[in-house]
Design a protein around this nucleic acid. Structure first.
Lengths: 198, 198
DNA sequence: GTCTATACGGCGATAGAC
DNA sequence: GTCTATCGCCGTATAGAC
């Protein structure tokens, strides 16, 4: 791997665990077996290194979400929506560092860098929203989802569920099996809330 | 206010905004018009000051949640459950600092202090869970909630909804009106998912 | 309990040899 | 591009007068 990438990878791990101010350049250098001043051959200063790390994390996280959306295939809407809940919750485990970094600095950015960061995060949301809404419309076409409920209403509710599961996974520190059980239980209520009554 | 309390109040605000390592004792002292060394007359060191702040925040946050639960009164289960969603989401605004501090350090504690902090946070969950489950049983007695769904299943789903709304409020930086609208929309689906079919 | 003065270490960053 | 050496600053913490 390129030196630059190795620095960013180490930064990702350390910034995630210790925060921006809690991470020293010495610690980053040590993790990849370098001396501190060598970092300056690749980044102008700590701030630039951090922002490059943010950029990498945002791109990678969005890529993960996008690939999970594309991997859903041609199942029924119900299967697709439920599978997506499993998968995105499990991202917390399979991509722990990226996922933690993303949320840590999204919610609690270093005050001095907040505005510079915000520009990088704008992308995310809409792609997932639109994909989910199209799956919901598919569910209506299948006759599985109640057509009297607006698709954007269901999407908003689904995304809130997703946020909640994501939150719970971190809060309770669920393992994969516990995530499955949690999603199964929550899905029962949600599906009952949107399924066609006929 | 006692000096000790004023120090903790300033700490609460600064730790919330800047994190543990990002907050200097000089900044805390300045905010309350003191000199840095004077802080040591009230706390043995920065770590002890932080832990005292955590203790205050946890107690206060739990008190807020508890008082919202008690304020629900003798309404129908549906009204109580929906009102609680509004109220707890609005805590993000009305008690912004406490709420942000609580979640910041619950999810991202300073590594060296994580174990000491964990002992203070154990309380929270169960009180709210039990209260909510009793409201749900009340809803079944009223004939409003479907009795074929286990009460703990509904509670788990409700709490996930609450987490999701909490998450969304921070993520999208909703104002109070947007919170209301968001809760109203999500509630439609959830209530449809648990209400008695008769 | 609060202050001024200060110790001590670690931080980000630079200079300059190789 | 990486190193050693070092600068200047600011962090926590202590000493000691009032």
């Amino acid at each position: 791997m390129e030196t630059r990438e190795r620095i960013i990878q180490a930064s990702l791990e350390l910034f995630t665990e210790r925060g921006y101010e809690g991470t020293t350049l010495a610690a980053i250098a040590k993790q990849i077996g370098m001396q501190k001043p060598s970092l300056y051959a690749h980044f102008t200063n700590k701030e630039a290194l951090f922002l490059a790390t943010v950029k990498t994390a945002v791109l990678e996280y969005n890529q993960i979400v996008r690939s999970e959306l594309e991997a859903l295939g041609a199942e029924t809407a119900e299967t697709q929506l439920k599978t997506l809940l499993y998968r995105l919750a499990e991202v917390y485990y399979d991509e722990y560092t990226i996922s933690q970094f993303y949320y840590r600095f999204l919610f609690f950015p270093p005050p001095a860098l907040a505005s510079k960061m915000q520009q990088m995060v704008e992308y995310h949301g809409s792609a997932a929203d639109q994909h989910i809404e199209s799956v919901i419309r598919q569910g209506k076409d299948e006759g599985a989802i109640d057509t009297s409920l607006a698709s954007d209403l269901i999407t908003e509710s689904y995304l809130c569920l997703l946020s909640g599961i994501d939150f719970d996974t971190r809060y309770y520190d669920f393992n994969k099996e516990q995530i499955r059980t949690h999603v199964d239980r929550i899905w029962q209520i949600f599906w009952r809330g949107i399924k066609a009554s006929g």
